[in-house]
Design a binder for these strands. Structure first.
Length: 288
DNA sequence: AGACTAACCTGAAAGC
DNA sequence: TGCTTTCAGGTTAGTC
């Protein structure tokens, strides 16, 4: 469920557990569409490698390796990247929970990647129940269309990036906010929150959003995402920080998931509708 | 080109 | 209680 803030929090926390350590073992689940690079190839090419740097573009994490290849990770909807020793009820495997175990996490059938290191623990785990996440190893000098088509990272964006894409487009402005080729990193929660703060209806046609409103939207998105990073990311259903602590931003949501609750600004009940196949929440009174 | 829909998966929660 | 339906923070391939 990670959007940009959750991915950034993950990147920061996992950096310390990854950078500079030499990989001595790779354990995976069986091949599936989760693995854009096959488990067999991953094992071959990750063994002996060291992560030099961890970067992020939009919702992708990019691990730069010492042979100039890049391990691309996407958390999808339920992906969790964390180090051995993380403690969280949500992280515990079914087996551990049913045994009323108070121990930390142990790898289960959803733990698709386990990295072991020459210096011993902690191992690093990539777990993803729904398998919407992705792992891809990009060779040195190679490119990947997934990355190539990404727009500017949401934290670096300016109103103009949105406005130039919005011109003459009749699609709802929310659809454009979610388009990773325009601005990368905004997901369903923060799109709704940004639209609320900027007082723009998610249903308004993009071409009816002027330059000032586009600037307000981008600024609002950055405001809520920065705040979310500070508080450790949202954790509405099962997002878990790599160190096991749950994020706190879900308590600051103004409209997302608050259908029928009073608008924090004017008291009108928040309405829920579906835009581009995603549930959308907004105040019908103060957003237009 | 633009814009919907369906699909990829699993599990929690709500509905009956 | 237990079975069925709905919903979920994402992305992409296919179709009109």
């Amino acid at each position: 469920m990670p959007e940009l803030p959750e991915v950034e929090v993950t990147r920061r926390r996992i950096s310390k557990l990854l950078i500079g350590r030499k990989i001595s073992g790779v354990v995976t689940t069986k091949p599936s569409y989760f693995f854009l690079t096959s488990p067999r190839t991953l094992k071959q090419r990750l063994l002996g490698r060291t992560v030099r740097e961890l970067e992020r573009h939009g919702k992708y994490i990019l691990a730069r390796l010492d042979d100039d290849s890049t391990l691309l990770l996407h958390l999808g909807m339920t992906g969790q990247l964390f180090g051995e020793g993380a403690r969280s009820a949500r992280l515990r495997s079914k087996a551990a929970r049913s045994a009323k175990s108070t121990d930390g996490f142990s790898p289960d059938e959803h733990t698709h990647l386990q990295l072991e290191f020459t210096d011993g623990k902690p191992r690093v785990f990539f777990r993803d129940v729904r398998k919407f996440g992705k792992i891809l190893l990009i060779s040195a000098g190679a490119s990947d269309p997934r990355l190539d088509k990404l727009g500017i990272d949401a934290l670096l964006a300016e109103g103009e990036h949105l406005f130039s894409a919005a011109r003459s487009r009749s699609i709802p402005i929310k659809t454009l906010l979610l388009d990773q080729a325009v601005i990368a990193g905004i997901g369903n929660i923060y799109a709704d929150e940004a639209l609320f703060l900027a007082r723009v209806s998610p249903e308004r046609a993009a071409k009816r959003v002027d330059a000032a409103a586009c600037a307000a939207l981008v600024a609002a998105a950055q405001q809520v995402m920065r705040r979310s990073i500070e508080t450790g990311g949202s954790s509405i259903s099962d997002y878990v920080n790599p160190d096991g602590a749950d994020g706190g931003y879900q308590n600051e949501r103004r409209v997302y998931g608050r259908e029928d609750e009073p608008c924090p600004r004017c008291g009108t009940p928040i309405r829920r509708t579906v835009i581009a196949g995603r549930s959308s929440h907004f105040c019908p009174s103060c957003q237009s």
